[in-house]
């Protein structure tokens, strides 16, 4: 059974539903405080990152997000867990960062990480939504990955899924003047995984794209495809009863999130 480390610090707040999501697809998840991995916990609670098969960074407001979303959690991880984390990733073990988790991956330099496992400086940033507000709303995502990403191996290219969004800082920001080059490069490397779309599966503006991200990019992976970061919440879409329109009719009890989590738990 796949062991999943659901990593948290103060202010991480989506660990319960992330736990439930992995549990539902038959994995063995555990909520682990960063201090349990770094030896700063009672003996019986200490854990080793390398004992886990999958690492999940759930959503929330880690350490309050008072500086830049995810920055503090990332700094603490880098300082105390950097080498292990690099090994975990290079060994191809699946890593997912959802919402604040995605912001942490970006701050860690794990996303987009074109040429190296973990860049010394963040190469992109997740910036304040164009609306300048926190946006809690359902979002439709088109799966645009051509096959590199392990997390989406259960989805077909062009499939549209509903994962809800809830964030204030989800606008993917590239260095000034390099937006097109970054987008092209992400696409060449098959690193773009999800794009915000409308009901017809077409790229569309607000509110379909809740934050104004260029290219409607909602989620990206590393070139190897084992590390996925996305703003919307697949763990909030595990049954159809999480859907905004479920009372308007939809078949079966399953939600789209199942296909994402099953893909990595079912491997080997």
């Amino acid at each position: 059974m796949k062991k999943v480390c659901i990593l948290r610090i103060e202010g991480t707040n989506c660990e319960d539903e992330t736990f439930a999501a992995f549990h539902k697809v038959g994995a063995e998840p555990e909520r682990v405080h960063l201090k349990q991995l770094t030896g700063h916990a009672p003996l019986d609670l200490r854990r080793d990152l390398m004992d886990y098969d999958i690492l999940a960074l759930p959503g929330g407001f880690s350490a309050g997000d008072y500086i830049r979303a995810g920055a503090i959690f990332a700094a603490r991880m880098k300082a105390s867990l950097g080498t292990q984390l690099r090994d975990f990733v290079t060994q191809g073990r699946p890593v997912i960062g959802i919402c604040n988790g995605f912001q942490i991956l970006v701050e860690l330099g794990l996303r987009p990480a074109f040429d190296e496992v973990m860049a010394p400086q963040p190469q992109v940033a997740l910036y304040t939504n164009d609306s300048d507000r926190f946006e809690c709303r359902p979002t439709l995502l088109r799966m645009d990955n051509r096959g590199s990403c392990v997390w989406t191996s259960g989805l077909g290219m062009g499939d549209v899924v509903m994962f809800p969004s809830a964030h204030a800082e989800g606008h993917l920001k590239f260095p000034a003047g390099e937006e097109d080059r970054f987008l092209e490069r992400l696409d060449e490397n098959d690193q773009i995984v999800f794009r915000y779309v409308d009901e017809d599966g077409q790229l569309a503006g607000y509110p379909w794209n809740p934050n104004g991200s260029p290219g409607n990019v909602a989620g990206i992976c590393n070139p190897e495809g084992n590390v996925l970061g996305l703003m919307p919440h697949p763990e909030r879409a595990m049954t159809r009863f999480n859907y905004p329109e479920w009372t308007r009719g939809r078949d079966g009890d399953d939600g789209d999130g199942l296909r994402l989590f099953r893909a990595v738990v079912g491997r080997n």
Partner: peptide, 12 residues
């Protein structure tokens, strides 16, 4: 919509 009404994933 400024309030997260779906965190904990149990708002059906």
């Amino acid at each position: 919509r400024q309030y997260d009404h779906e965190v904990r994933a149990s708002t059906v």
